[in-house]
Design a protein around this nucleic acid. Structure first.
Lengths: 205, 205
DNA sequence: CGAGTGACCAAATTTGTAAATAGTCACATG
DNA sequence: CATGTGACTATTTACAAATTTGGTCACTCG
């Protein structure tokens, strides 16, 4: 939603009409169908009726295309989380729903769009900008929730905010980071509940 | 230290003299040098002067040998943890040291004995008995520490013990499970401190 | 009978090589 | 000049043949 593909409309390569978007669309379809490795740049070019060389006028590399669709995938998760948080009455409940929706969206990505999940996991493993932005946004939302809870008196205020947020971020990391989630799938059901309880206990005034 | 290799001395295969031990010793050396996959059971046999077939009188499979040295590796970590816990005055401090020693021993295994670490990680990923026993023992020690803290009045007593232990186990899991630790190495320094603080806050009466 | 093995097999792994792919560039074309 | 491309190369990948390896068993030897 921020520095995504379709944003930055200013001339970046040659014409800006909509070729870049076409590439992204084709990539999204091919990647989610055949996976990142199995789709070639020529496939993408062919499917939008251009030559492979032209693609490189819009993206520096195949990986850059992967980045674009990875960013799209991850920001869909963020949107789900934002909605979940927005609909919650208290900070306590915001945290619970945030954690839960984060995990369940991730898990459903894993089972329903494995190919896209794999890209996201790879992205997280390599520290691509899309993954960094994702993690950063989550931390940001988390901080807003904690701050709200502190202001409303739900949470304690002694511990430095940064420290609290950082620690909680560490707790949820294994279920939120696509690279790690896949190794914790068997805990995806219980972890959000159990860990929310623990975290909220640690936040008690 | 419990149901390890060299225990169970009763006749298991043919003679019990010390062939089994020789195998384990040779395996430990070869595995840590060349890795599990790169050492063949013929290598092991040759290095102790027997034929490959004879090895199978003592172990059902190559994996069983891997299990044995994996169990040895993991129980070395447990020993370090037990010492750390034993030397701590309070339950609070026991928990801090337990977590810290668990991580630092694991990290040092990763950097100093990568080949052995890889076996442990594989073991954890496949749910081998050695890894299960390791996790179980950690949970057990954790429970003892929490119980002690509850009895001494350091920790709260309202939450069911099982639930508390389970949640804390989930928190430390990513830094304690060899399969996961390797993806969290960059956090190995801060995580034990930050998370200990959070957990102990959640345990406050 | 207990200690120990060579020979054997199916499955996995390595190896060598032909084919495919990411990425570049000089050049069309209107 | 803006839009677009075929042809080229260095590097990967895909694949089949050849080798190795995990595992078994009938057998020897004392």
């Amino acid at each position: 939603m921020s520095e995504n593909a379709s944003s930055a409309p200013q001339s970046r390569g040659p014409a800006d009409h909509n070729v870049r978007e076409q590439i992204v669309e084709a990539a999204e379809e091919h990647f989610s169908h055949y996976g990142y490795e199995k789709t070639t740049v020529s496939d993408l070019a062919k499917s939008i009726g251009f030559s492979k060389a032209y693609i490189y006028k819009f993206f520096d590399s195949k990986q850059a295309i992967g980045e674009a669709i990875c960013a799209k995938t991850l920001s869909a998760i963020i949107v789900a989380v934002e909605e979940a948080v927005a609909n919650a009455p208290t900070a306590t409940e915001k945290f619970r729903r945030m954690f839960k929706s984060l995990v369940s969206t991730g898990v459903s990505l894993f089972f329903n769009d494995r190919k896209l999940y794999d890209i996201a996991a790879h992205s997280a493993g390599e520290g691509w900008p899309s993954a960094r932005a994702y993690a950063q946004r989550i931390e940001q939302i988390l901080m807003e929730v904690i701050r709200e809870g502190r202001e409303s008196g739900e949470f304690e205020r002694k511990t430095p905010l940064d420290e609290t947020v950082n620690a909680i971020f560490l707790v949820i990391q294994p279920y939120v980071n696509p690279l790690l989630l896949q190794y914790n799938l068997d805990l995806a059901e219980e972890a959000p509940v159990q860990l929310s309880n623990l975290v909220l206990r640690s936040l008690a005034p």
